[in-house]
Design a protein around this nucleic acid. Structure first.
Lengths: 223, 223
DNA sequence: TATTTACTAAACGAAAGCGTACAGTAATAA
DNA sequence: TTATTACTGTACGCTTTCGTTTAGTAAATA
């Protein structure tokens, strides 16, 4: 089974106006049930029958809405993605007060990246990487890649303002993100280490920001 | 089910000398089969019956050797861990020629961290984090944590030699590891981005090393 | 009212996996 | 030889899940 890529990711069937209209509430209920089941016990607990039971809905209805088990999984992930992009979109990008903005940015980002919500999503994606190779890219693009771009642009603005020397902003953004995450990313994902304390996180973020800022600081000043 | 932690990780049953001796070859064959199945199709493909089929062995024998499905999974992971620690143990730690050593270290490390072998292991661990909470720690301790310690020690030596200024070596080691990994670690794990080219990897590693070295360089020199 | 669509309830068949049982064969030490 | 342990092969019971079917009810439009 080479695994078909769904033709349309955003599956907007025209919807004929005839007959009984679909119950939007049921759809939400099923999605909510799916999320609940998944967060409680991982992918293993995410079954069609389980969703039907939990959502108080006929099994056939679940099939009518999501077609497949893969379809259900896909729906859960895409819903999660929408939430994720919303979170990342909201990150502050004030070009003045560079240091403070970067620290703020880093804190918010790391708060999200160490949240149970995010970790659970990542774990699911990791376990699905082989079965559904199309899932990874759409998350990575709109998540990590977009965030890195945003951060690089922020640094670029600072260069244009004269707050930083000319440098490879993209590289600096990657380095910053790397240092923020530290080497514990995988540890967190596999449950190998505890979520870092807020204080330690803040220290890590500030150190990294200072490291980058001092390295690319304009000629005159020296911290 | 609160999930029991196995009493002894290194399960060395005394082995009475009576009776027919266990066939060591079969044990290896089963482990090999388990690995093969797992690397081919993930945890989902790792089943008792599958291993029995692939190893050309009776199903009962698989149960005799590994007791459980969890037992089989555990055996695969522990075997993988032994290999991993061997790889990490072999990393060069020459205190003279600091820059070259660090780059070498980074390259070897990243080669491993981006290998299919490692990624598959991580994916398995990620998906098992909820069911088997004891698995993550033993990998993280002997993997990431040990490597970070090693790197910090390397930097500490350099400080003592006068090749670097006094600084927080542990923090620097974490920053270095973070920058080496970059923000793509999770992307790789979820199959969201391609394995970075060797050239790009080298550039990333060298940049990071230079960033750290120049920041903590002794007073006199300036690169 | 007739048609079309959404939903329910219960049951079924097929498949896969877990773990166990039984009956028998193979290899080794006492 | 005999007790002991390792292994085989087949079969069975049990559970879970998938996905489908059937027959019927509910809500909307033409």
């Amino acid at each position: 089974m080479p695994e078909q890529v769904p033709a349309e990711i955003d599956d907007q069937t025209p919807r004929s106006t005839r007959g009984r209209p679909p119950d939007e509430g049921k759809h939400e209920a099923m999605l909510a049930a799916a999320r609940a089941l998944f967060y409680a016990g991982g992918l293993k607990s995410l079954t069609m029958e389980g969703v039907a039971r939990t959502a108080g809905v006929s099994k056939v209805t679940v099939y009518a809405h999501f077609n497949d088990l893969p379809g259900l999984i896909r729906a859960v992930i895409l819903a999660q993605r929408d939430h994720m992009t919303a979170v990342l979109e909201a990150l502050a990008t004030d070009p003045t007060q560079l240091r403070q903005t970067l620290i703020e940015f880093g804190l918010c980002l790391m708060d999200y990246l160490t949240s149970d919500e995010f970790l659970t999503l990542q774990r699911m994606l990791a376990s699905q990487a082989m079965q559904h190779p199309w899932l990874g890219p759409i998350i990575h693009q709109e998540g990590a890649e977009a965030t890195c771009d945003k951060l690089a642009a922020l640094l670029g603005d600072a260069v244009r303002c004269g707050d930083l020397r000319e440098h490879d902003c993209r590289l600096a953004a990657e380095q910053l993100l790397g240092m923020w995450q530290g080497f514990q990313t995988t540890g967190l994902m596999i449950g190998g280490c505890a979520k870092p304390a807020r204080k330690a996180l803040r220290h890590r973020i500030e150190s990294s920001v200072d490291l980058i800022l001092s390295t690319h600081a304009p000629e005159n000043e020296a911290s």
